[in-house]
C-alpha cells in the first residue's frame, strides 16, 4: 500500500490542494473568462451606478455610485463563486468528477477543495474591482482594504459552498439559465446591494434576512463607510451569520455529495 494513510485524516490536504490548484491554473489560462467576469461588475458600477447617481442622492454626502460599491464587490463574489461551484455540473457532464469520485478522497475534502477554489478565484477578482476605489472619489485605509479582503474570503467561501449544494441537484449544464434567473439574480437584488433593504416589503425582507450576501454586503459597508446609519446589522452579526452559514453549507454539501455523487 504505497498510497499513504488518507483514510485516517478528515481532510486530505494533497487532494484539497490539487483541486484548488487545478481551478486556479484553468482560471489563469482562460483570459476570456477573467475579462467577462470583470465586465459584469464594471457595467453595473459605472453604467447603472453612474446613471442612477444623477437621480438618487443620500444626505450623508455619499454618492449612489459609492453606495453600491460594497454591493458591487458582493456581486463580483456572488457570480464568480456560483460559477466556480457549478463547474461541478460541467465536471459531471464531461467526466472529470468520476475520476475524483473513484479516488480515495473523502467527499468532505472534495467539498472543501471546491469551496476553496471558488474562494480563491472570487477574492482575486474582488481585489481587482476593489482597486477602483480611487476612481469613485473614495479613500480607504490599508486596514479597511485588508478587512475587505478578509470579509470577501469568508463571503466567497460561504457562497461557493452554497453553490456546491445547488450543483448537486443538477445533472447538465442546460439548467444554467434557471440557476442564474431563480437563484443568483434574486440573491443579488435581495441583499441590499442596490438599495437599502429596509425599504423592501416585509415578505421580501424575510428573504434578505436569510441571504448570506446581505450580511456580506453589510460587512463591506462597515469596512468602507464610517457613517453608521448606512448599516443594517452590527459587524459581529454579519460575521457570525457568515461563519455559521458556511459551516451549515459545507455540512449539507458533503452530505449531498456522499449520497448523490
Amino acid at each position: 500500500m504505497q498510497c499513504g494513510h488518507t483514510g485516517r485524516n478528515l481532510i486530505e490536504t494533497n487532494a484539497v490542494y490539487v483541486i484548488v490548484a487545478r481551478e486556479f491554473k484553468k482560471f489563469i489560462r482562460e483570459k476570456s473568462r477573467l475579462i467577462s467576469t470583470l465586465a459584469r461588475p464594471l457595467i453595473w458600477l459605472f453604467l447603472v451606478g453612474g446613471g442612477m447617481s444623477k437621480l438618487v442622492s443620500f444626505g450623508s454626502g455619499i454618492s449612489y455610485m459609492q453606495f453600491i460599491f460594497p454591493g458591487i464587490l458582493g456581486m463580483t463574489i456572488l457570480f464568480s463563486s456560483i460559477f466556480s461551484s457549478i463547474s461541478i455540473i460541467w465536471d459531471k457532464e464531461f467526466g472529470l468528477m468520476k475520476e475524483i469520485l473513484v479516488a480515495p478522497v473523502s467527499r468532505f475534502s472534495i467539498v472543501i477543495g471546491k469551496a476553496l477554489s471558488g474562494m480563491v478565484i472570487s477574492v482575486l477578482q474582488t481585489i481587482i474591482i476593489l482597486m477602483l476605489f480611487p476612481f469613485l472619489g473614495m479613500e480607504l485605509s490599508i486596514l479597511s482594504i485588508l478587512s475587505i479582503i478578509g470579509i470577501a474570503s469568508l463571503l466567497a467561501f460561504c457562497i461557493s459552498a452554497l453553490g456546491i449544494i445547488v450543483a448537486t441537484f443538477f445533472e447538465s449544464f442546460e439548467s444554467f439559465g434557471a440557476i442564474i434567473n431563480f437563484i443568483v439574480m434574486p440573491m443579488f437584488f435581495l441583499s441590499g446591494a442596490m438599495y437599502p433593504v429596509d425599504k423592501l416589503p416585509s415578505i421580501l425582507k424575510v428573504i434578505t434576512r436569510i441571504n448570506p450576501l446581505t450580511y456580506g454586503v453589510d460587512a463591506f459597508k462597515h469596512a468602507i463607510f464610517s457613517d453608521s446609519s448606512i448599516h443594517d446589522f452590527s459587524l459581529l452579526t454579519d460575521l457570525t451569520f457568515l461563519v455559521i452559514s458556511s459551516i451549515i453549507a459545507v455540512a449539507v454539501a458533503s452530505f449531498l455529495f456522499e449520497r448523490k455523487g
Partner: peptide
Amino acid sequence: ENLLFHAYLYNVK
C-alpha cells in the same frame, strides 16, 4: 498536469 492531478489525488509521495 492531468497525471499530476491524479498523483496528488492518490497521495503519491
